[in-house]
Design a protein around this nucleic acid. Structure first.
Length: 259
DNA sequence: ATATTCCCCTGGAAGC
DNA sequence: TGCTTCCAGGGGAATA
């Protein structure tokens, strides 16, 4: 998309956070894309004037780029027309995705959607000691804390479960009860899991596809997520499932004991 | 401030 | 077969 000029845009207004078509068209038309980058789970489309679009795919969002036939695809919630005749479609079955305009310098991350985000997990800033330092005052269950994007970004339900299993930590443990040793194990596990998942092209459960339409095959490497009642790959005990804040936690009670 | 609960929305799978 | 219930990669607002 780099170098493309946007010639038109529209939105049907159904995304969780959305922009009306008039504003979207007025903001985008004539602008040239200088880069497509990322902060946390947000995709950033950077224009040459340093403004940009802040996009989030939610649970079921996807981008599909095809020649423009003037027709909306199923579940197409917004689209952008490119000067080369292609149509960049923002499709999203569940409408949990978001679309926001950033008139100022998008890379400064001062936009409210980006201002309070936590550490990037694959940088050196995120490590055992920073995890330990940032979590001292919180009684929140460690899995909930890990998934809160104000602390660490990018760790969703699948990878939080897998990292906690790899680190041998029970998801219900109050995060401030983790000592430096366990924080180191957890930070290392988060990095390992994310890197392996990225290398595998992501985790396709049902909807997720790479930008070229291919599935990610990390699902076969999942050790606890979605495996309630199945034997733990390490010790053979039955994997349990519990709800934390409406999200399912999967863990092995023997390999991840409460302490 | 912090911790649960609920809600946004659609579709697929499982239960009856 | 058909209807109902539960569940899902996220995130934020409304309650305790």
């Amino acid at each position: 998309m780099r170098g493309q000029v946007i010639t038109g845009a529209a939105s049907c207004g159904r995304l969780r956070v959305d922009v009306d078509s008039v504003s979207l068209q007025g903001f985008c038309a004539g602008k040239c894309i200088s880069a497509v980058t990322r902060r946390a789970k947000y995709l950033l489309v950077v224009f040459t004037d340093r403004s940009g679009l802040i996009l989030h795919l939610g649970m079921t969002g996807s981008f599909v780029i095809t020649p423009d036939d003037g027709q909306a695809r199923p579940y197409e919630r917004a689209y952008f027309l490119l000067a080369d005749g292609r149509r960049w479609r923002f499709c999203d079955i569940r409408c949990f995705g978001s679309l926001q305009l950033c008139p100022g310098d998008i890379q400064s991350c001062t936009h409210p959607a980006l201002a309070d985000l936590g550490l990037e997990p694959l940088t050196g800033d995120f490590n055992g000691s920073s995890l330990h330092r940032l979590s001292r005052n919180s009684r929140t269950p460690v899995k909930t804390w890990l998934m809160d994007q104000h602390n660490v970004v990018g760790v969703g339900n699948i990878y939080a479960n897998e990292a906690l299993f790899q680190a041998g930590i029970n998801p219900a443990t109050p995060v401030r009860r983790l000592g430096l040793q366990r924080c180191r194990r957890l930070a290392a596990a988060v990095k390992t899991i994310l890197q392996a998942a990225i290398a595998a092209g992501g985790t396709t459960i049902s909807d997720y596809r790479d930008v070229d339409g291919s599935e990610g095959h990390f699902r076969t490497a999942l050790e606890v997520y979605g495996r309630a009642g199945e034997p733990c790959p390490r010790c053979g005990d039955s994997i349990e499932r519990l709800l934390q804040g409406g999200r399912a936690a999967f863990f092995c009670p023997r390999c991840q004991p409460r302490r």
